[in-house]
Design a protein around this nucleic acid. Structure first.
Lengths: 167, 167
DNA sequence: GCTATCACGGATAATTATTATCCGCGTTAA
DNA sequence: TTAACGCGGATAATAATTATCCGTGATAGC
């Protein structure tokens, strides 16, 4: 039982997008390259984030991705949900039914309530942290030197929308 | 991301063992048969429960398994731990390190604290329910008729230790 | 308009985690 | 001594996850 690594990868992708100036986008390939991950699979992740309305995509030559919400309106749970989906961590397998030969529609599991509560406790914590609060953590001293480099790289790789100057 | 079904199976196995009288054991095969699951895999689960000191095993001809602790001293989390192990639901994959080119031993993930808290919230809920409280739920009215049958079956299948009468 | 670059989405392959089986061993009741 | 049990390692089958490929549609620059 392990959370998909796609959740973490998505969080960092969104953190990257959060560093973009307005009207700028970053291509999926640039993102995956910077995050050192499989480009094609990353595209899949990014599309899930698009479906979840967390980021927006722009097709075409200078296309790419950008945030669709304010960083303080995207929490870790939103990203978790976008990637992992709504399927719950536990679903009863009907053993109790076998054990007691219950009918199908009878209450079939002693654990369901407990596990649902547990899962909701887990999710509640994930709702606490947002992209904004994570970005703030990234601005701590020790990250500063490299963060400047990163910003530099972004400025080179980002694609600006509309008919305005580029690079 | 889904909890192993082995956790649920183990809970019900332990509930079965909890219905045994003192000094009686139930063979792994009887358990798996009653719970309608793969016998060989069930043996593996049972051994994990033995390692975790939740149940005891008796080798030899009239051997089998029995509880090792009182039902009120076994919580769902204990069983979860026995089956799922200590590996946490989330472990950072070092992406932030790539992103900021951090050294190996620097604090490498913005999510670790949050996810650890989330996991511990999830585990906390699982600590609330015990085998005793689950057994109590099973004694509710609607389960009664079948529970009696089950007890009957247990009386037939259980193996009694020491040189005393059997069956 | 034409072309190169991007996202899209379906099909499919590779990899990893989980579930399940097999077999030879040690133990013990009869 | 034998048959019924748990033990533990090796290994196979299955399912979930991660990764790739390829044809399509959109758009900026020419």
């Amino acid at each position: 039982m392990h959370m998909k690594t796609g959740v973490e990868q998505s969080v960092y992708a969104i953190l990257l997008l959060n560093m973009l100036p307005n009207k700028a986008v970053l291509s999926g390939e640039a993102i995956s390259q910077q995050l050192n991950a499989s480009p094609t699979y990353y595209q899949k992740l990014l599309r899930k984030l698009v479906s979840a309305d967390l980021i927006a995509s722009v097709p075409g030559v200078k296309g790419g991705f950008r945030l669709k919400k304010r960083p303080e309106d995207i929490c870790v749970y939103d990203i978790y949900l976008a990637i992992e989906g709504r399927q719950s961590l536990y679903s009863p397998s009907g053993i109790l039914g076998d054990l007691l030969e219950l009918e199908k529609n009878e209450y079939g599991c002693l654990l369901t309530d407990l596990m649902n509560e547990a899962e909701s406790a887990w999710k509640t914590v994930m709702k606490r942290e947002t992209i904004a609060s994570l970005a703030q953590k990234m601005e701590e001293e020790r990250f500063q030197p490299k963060a400047a480099e990163l910003q530099q790289w972004l400025n080179e790789k980002m694609l600006v929308q509309e008919r305005s100057g580029n690079r």
